[in-house]
Design a protein around this nucleic acid. Structure first.
Lengths: 125, 125
DNA sequence: TGTTCATATGAACAATTGCTCATATATTAA
DNA sequence: TTAATATATGAGCAATTGTTCATATGAACA
């Protein structure tokens, strides 16, 4: 009532209060969204999927995905900043690999969801 | 060598071939990225986090998050299309709730990752 | 029927994002 | 040092995204 965000009168104040108390800190939810954002790009998912199988250098990944070295390097930077990949230098060549087991877990959970026999369509038309 | 995407000579063909064979279908990876993309927005994460606690109507969510009814409604549409939320009508009021258990799983995996005592910073600066 | 109200939706706009291109950095070898 | 090469990075641009605003839809009720 008289609220500046919603003109509705039907507001369940008790529910809102309860949820407000139970919800994680705003900052935590922000960080969570930032993490998922990193996974929310086809190129990055492909890179992660590739590194899931083997350590690879920038050049290998570019060739594998048929993309430019620059594009791959830019995305690897994002993955590095999110600490999802590690890198190891060997002369001029930089080898990338997955940083930890969490990625596999998150990744596989997502895959299960996708593969569920429910006729999903993520068309954001 | 002579590749159109990378000017490097150091390409590990055997690794690339191996990875290429093992990687999931391109389409699956695309769908996976689309799923994560839905989780990759603060507003949507907040909505999911709220519905994690209780079923709520559009108006409740708008008030809880201090956002307009329109903004919330638009985001609920995205969540609906990704089949992450269900809705139930009761007169003029539409109640939303989480669609299934997978969300909790994916969500919590992400939180664990975030909460790991490693000094994470997802600053995409 | 017409009015009220909860929600949905289309258009427009600003902010963000992912790529390309050019160039910088860093390492190796001559 | 200079040349060659693997990777990194900044600027610019097109495409995408999230919000606002105005309006449409649909349900309850006088």
């Amino acid at each position: 009532m008289g609220d500046e965000f919603c003109s509705c009168d039907i507001v369940h104040e008790n529910v809102i209060e309860m949820v407000k108390k139970k919800m994680p800190q705003e900052e935590k939810l922000y960080d969570l969204a930032e993490l998922f954002k990193v996974f929310g790009d086809t190129t990055r998912v492909k890179i992660i999927s590739a590194l899931f199988e083997a350590e690879m250098c920038v050049c290998d990944i570019a060739e594998l995905l048929h993309m430019t070295q620059s594009a791959i390097s830019h995305q690897l930077r994002v993955l590095r900043q999110a600490r999802l990949v590690k890198h190891r230098k060997e002369g001029k060549v930089v080898f990338y690999s997955l940083d930890d087991e969490h990625i596999k877990a998150i990744f596989n959970q997502g895959l299960e969801h996708i593969l569920e026999p429910r006729g999903f369509e993520y068309a954001i038309s």
